[in-house]
Amino acid sequence: MADLSQFPITSRWPAKDPSVIQLYAFPTPNGVKASIALEEMGLDYEPHLVTLSDDDVKSDAFLSLNPNNKIPAIIDPNGPDGPVGIWESGAILLYLAEKSGKFGGANGTDKAHITQWLMWQMGGLGPMLGQLGFFTKFAGKDIEDPRPRQRYLDEAKRLLSVLDGALEGRDWIVNDYSIADMAIAPWLNALNFYGVKDDVGFDDLKNVPAYLDRFYARPAVDKAKNIPARPE
């Protein structure tokens, strides 16, 4: 049985089975990237609900694993050199793809392109849609100046156009289904939550809507989309 006592986070979120990957997350677009990957790859794991409240993500326990106070994070008791903690959703996807040998690309070219699209999501699609959500649904909506929201609306439309073009004639962003799709699609689904699908012209896109439908039709995705389960 693995000893995870070196990770203080386990004092607050104790592991029932310390021999499997420990997932600390909340079912946001970034959070479900990890649960989807774990389900798709068939890796044994134990989910722990870490809410977005300061009491959780800014607690000493969580900060001991992720000093950047963002979900998701994992502990792999069977890391390459012993137990290892990983944070940042993109880094987790890359780590799990390497560990499992799945969804990271069948050859060097595909691996490079998958990483390319993963970085595109991490640096572009996620942050821009998140900011659009802030200025549409959350506190930013009360700002009278229309320019901040318009800036992120225009950028969201541009990024969606890039994705729509890249999906022409293909089911997945890089040949076979990969961790790049696991990163991109949950953020597309966030457009519903933010209430901006009409604003960005989502249904007018040629390829993206069907791509999102294909993604959520996968059994592993359907199972993982609410792991760890939101409190009722």
Rank of each mutant, 00 (worst) to 15 (best):
L160A: 02
A183H: 08
G101K: 02
V162Y: 10
S178A: 08
M128W: 02
M128E: 14
T115K: 15
L160V: 05
G169Q: 04
D110H: 15
V162N: 13
K102G: 08
G82Y: 07
W120T: 02
N78C: 00
D176F: 05
K111A: 13
K99H: 11
I173P: 01
P146D: 12
D145T: 08
D176L: 10
T115Y: 08
K99F: 03
G140V: 09
W117Q: 03
N189D: 14
G169M: 00
P186C: 01
M119R: 06
I74S: 04
L118Y: 00
L94N: 12
L94A: 15
A91Q: 05
G169L: 03
D145F: 15
A97Q: 04
G108R: 14
K102A: 09
N78S: 14
T109G: 13
M122G: 01
G123W: 06
M128G: 02
G105F: 06
L167H: 00
R151Q: 11
I179D: 04
M119K: 03
P127S: 00
I86W: 10
R170D: 10
D164I: 09
W187Q: 06
P186A: 11
P148K: 12
Q131Y: 03
T136E: 06
F138M: 12
G101V: 00
G82W: 02
D76G: 11
N78A: 12
K157R: 14
N189A: 15
Q121W: 07
Q121D: 09
G123Q: 01
R151V: 00
K157P: 13
R149M: 05
G108C: 04
I114V: 06
H113E: 15
S100Y: 12
F138E: 05
G101C: 07
F135N: 08
W120E: 01
L129A: 11
I75N: 09
Q150I: 06
W87V: 08
F134I: 12
G90F: 10
L132S: 05
K111E: 07
V84A: 01
L188S: 00
I75T: 07
L94I: 14
I184F: 03
G108K: 13
M122F: 00
M122A: 14
A106C: 12
S178L: 03
F135A: 09
Y95G: 06
I86C: 11
P146Q: 09
R151D: 00
A156H: 10
E168Q: 15
M119Q: 07
K137L: 10
T136C: 04
G165N: 14
D171N: 14
I184S: 07
A112P: 04
G104N: 00
L96M: 12
W117L: 10
P148L: 00
I179H: 06
A183N: 08
G85C: 09
L125Y: 08
I179T: 13
F138S: 08
K157V: 15
W172I: 05
G104A: 04
P127L: 05
